[in-house]
Nucleic acid binder design. Sequence first.
DNA 1: ATCCCGAGGG
DNA 2: CCCTCTGGAT
Length: 229
Amino acid sequence: MSKKEALYIDEIYGRLKRKFGPVSCPLHYQKPYQLCVAVILSAQCTDEMVNRVTPELFKAFPDPRSLAEAPVAEVERLIHSTGFYRNKARNIQGFCRALVNEHGGKVPQTIEELVKMPGVGRKTANVVLQELYGISSGFVVDTHVLRLSRLLGLSHAKDAVRMEKDLMQKVPPKYWMDLSLYLIFLGRSACVARRPRCTECVLSDVCPSSTVDTKRPAPKKGRPSLHQD
DNA sequence: ATCCCGAGGG
DNA sequence: CCCTCTGGAT
């Protein structure tokens, strides 16, 4: 990795840190098993939506055993609005069963063990390890990180697994935890997928994909655009 | 590579 | 109508 690239990453990290400050997991939870369930539910769904359904879910089933033994239909009903509700219901119940039966109710501390559990992939495992134990097992790559990393030119990997490897090589481990959250926050505020608002973005003058030109007044035509208007 | 799937925004 | 949202299993 070039020195220039390292400075580029430092610059991105510094700006996002200044903008967002200290960050924490946006998912609401009281107990460790609840975080795991919330992260599984967050697949292809906003965290707001997850936070909307989990209070009732955790009130109805306050521990992993009761959630594992609950009627599937009831679990499906409670999480219905998060989408993929059949898969997710099966996954969170399978997860809770594995948690109780194979891990004594305690969330595993290694990514190898976590990934073997139902509904848990690398993204979910990385989030859980970071949030619960402060372990940086990898770089959390979700749909936002995937999109923004490409726009910023940090990685052009096609899938999340390859991009994680890529980012782990380029980004210093001390940045992993916060940078993935920063990218997610930026992807949720200014750099939204549908129509990025580059004028509101703190990275616009260093981002190779920015539609804001800081040097020239304004191109009349042929503006490099990421999308069709 | 494909499927799962509802909610929200443009 | 279309695309997107803190993915994972097959």
